[in-house]
């Protein structure tokens, strides 16, 4: 799923500026699962705004609404009836959702309340970890199912570097060394000889480096 962090309340307030009619817009997909922008988090942020402005003695209107998805226009259209009543849409979706809402409501100010961070998995309730960088050319078959691009701090295709120590990365001892994981996995699956292969220079064109990406499936088009 896409994982994010909520922005600091102070930053959100600064971005809102003098605007007091706010539609806090959540998303029922990834950001709900990772506890950053679903219905509950919409409730918390809206509550924070109300408490703050009440304390300041201001008049305001905060509405809470959560869409099934903010990355599909049929859901975004569902707020068409009342979006105009607000000065600003404070989107709690990932960066894709924020942009798509913004594209759909061109005259509206749409602000992000979330910093989108990574594509990852749930390690345990309340803990998420990065797994993929969407490079567009998966090599997991060659690295025993552990992605060095996403999980090695240097994205080394032929690691580990000299900073791997006790299974941890040189950047901090909380972070697993991706190449230690790869070597362990190769060993466990009896493929240690694969370590001897040099992974070739990567063609990054399939990734962000090749420019913004788009996918089309003609057969699915209406």
């Amino acid at each position: 799923m896409i994982v994010g962090n909520r922005k600091d309340f102070k930053e959100i307030l600064e971005k809102l500026g003098p605007r007091r009619r706010v539609l806090v817009l959540g998303c029922n997909e990834c950001v709900t699962v990772c506890g950053v922008g679903g219905e509950r988090e919409v409730g918390v942020l809206a509550s924070e705004l109300r408490l703050f402005w009440k304390k300041e003695g201001e008049t305001f209107e905060v509405r809470e609404h959560t869409l099934e998805r903010q990355c599909d226009c049929e859901y975004i259209d569902q707020i068409r009836g009342f979006a105009d009543e607000y000065d600003v849409i404070l989107s709690m979706a990932c960066g894709a959702g924020v942009q798509y809402v913004s594209e759909a409501y061109k005259t509206k100010l749409v602000l992000p309340a979330v910093n989108t961070t990574f594509l990852g998995v749930t390690i345990e309730q309340g803990v998420w970890s990065e797994r993929c960088q969407g490079c567009g050319a998966c090599i997991l078959d060659m690295t025993a199912g552990v992605c060095p691009i996403a999980r090695c701090a240097k994205s080394l295709l032929n690691g580990p570097c000299g900073g791997s120590s006790g299974g941890k990365c040189e950047i901090d001892n909380e972070t697993d060394c991706a190449w230690q994981l790869i070597v362990d996995r190769l060993k466990e699956s009896g493929q240690m000889e694969r370590y001897e292969e040099i992974l070739p220079v990567k063609d990054w064109r399939s990734g962000r480096e090749g420019g913004p990406r788009k996918r089309v499936r003609e057969d699915l088009k209406l």
């Binding site: 509950r40 409730g43 918390v44």
Partner: peptide, 10 residues
């Protein structure tokens, strides 16, 4: 729940 406490303050 977090919201329960916040609502009380509201």
């Amino acid at each position: 729940d977090v919201l329960l406490i916040l609502r009380a303050f509201e």
